[in-house]
């Protein structure tokens, strides 16, 4: 059938492959060396132990994983999950209406609102959280006002508790909830809502039966972007919680920077990786797109 096969010279094949190689090899090399290898290494050392001078001893043991079930640690996991969950919930309650308002605005107002949502990030999170201490502290703005008004005699303890940590988390992570929801609402086909109204759905019913299911992928994406970091943001609990609230992240950081028990810190990190894997798996199983997590 074929009269003569097309001559594809080696030179030509190389020439055709060159653009692909130049474009894709840098990222491949980079991500393998700096993501795949390090994570594999973490997994490896999580099965190791340390000697007296804190050096890693490469001898297989599961002792770090046994230690993970220490009762104090278990209560820290519980605390950590509770704080992450609360932060996530509050972010949804605030972020969803805000994203809706933003998506419903004129294009110019939209970009303006977006710019002012991201603007605070250019000032360091730590400083901004520190600003909250001046507001919430026992001599801070809120207590002063309340005392001036005679509503309280003793200053309220607003800092150094779970409430303050959750507030700090919401403060730092709120935009990561708003953005994915906003993107989904923008793409929402308006005629579906009109069809729902047309078919007699009242606003509340329409919201719960049509809008919310259609935008749930955004909520899910936002929840992942809030919940997972909230497990690890040890600086928020340091600043807002003082020593009262310990997150998994605090324990990990301490193993690496103070206790110098890296293998145990690695084992703790494996827990976080597992939680991440489970959540991301659930997200993609329900039709979530991975790109939506990163494209902002």
């Amino acid at each position: 059938m074929a009269s003569r096969s097309a001559p594809t010279s080696l030179r030509k094949r190389i020439r055709r492959k060159t653009p692909l190689l130049t474009m894709v090899s840098p990222v491949t090399v980079w991500m393998v060396i700096l993501i795949a290898v390090p994570l594999a290494y973490v997994l490896l050392i999580s099965f190791c132990s340390t000697d007296e001078s804190h050096h890693i001893v490469f001898a297989f043991s599961v002792q770090n994983y046994v230690k993970l079930f220490d009762p104090t640690l278990l209560s820290i996991y519980g605390n950590s999950l509770l704080i992450a969950g609360l932060s996530c919930l509050i972010s949804i309650l605030v972020g969803y209406p805000f994203a809706t308002i933003m998506a419903n605005s004129s294009p110019f107002k939209r970009t303006l609102m977006m710019a002012f949502l991201m603007l605070p990030f250019w000032t360091n999170s730590l400083i901004r959280l520190y600003g909250w201490r001046s507001i919430l502290g026992s001599n801070g703005f809120i207590n002063s006002v309340l005392q001036e008004l005679g509503l309280i005699t003793q200053p309220l303890e607003l800092l150094y508790n779970h409430f303050a940590v959750v507030l700090g988390m919401v403060y730092v992570l709120l935009p990561f909830m708003v953005l994915p929801i906003y993107t989904v609402i923008l793409k929402l086909d308006h005629s579906l809502l009109e069809a729902a109204s047309d078919l007699g759905a009242r606003p509340a019913r329409r919201f719960f039966k049509v809008t919310l299911p259609l935008t749930s992928s955004g909520i899910f994406a936002g929840s992942i972007m809030v919940f997972i970091p909230a497990l690890g943001y040890f600086f928020v609990s340091n600043l807002m919680g003082g020593g009262t609230t310990q997150l998994i992240g605090n324990v990990i950081a301490r193993q690496f920077k103070e206790a110098f028990n890296w293998p145990f810190g690695a084992a703790l990190s494996i827990i976080l990786i597992l939680i991440t894997l489970i959540l991301v798996r659930a997200y993609t199983k329900t039709g979530g797109k991975m790109d939506d997590l990163g494209a902002m």
């Binding site: 074929a2 009269s3 003569r4 096969s5 097309a6 001559p7 594809t8 010279s9 030509k12």
Partner: peptide
């Protein structure tokens, strides 16, 4: 697109390459 087999001539010359 590159043909899987056969020849294409433009102005009498093969253009595969």
């Amino acid at each position: 697109e590159q043909q899987t087999s056969g020849t294409i001539l433009v102005e009498g010359e093969p253009v595969e390459d």
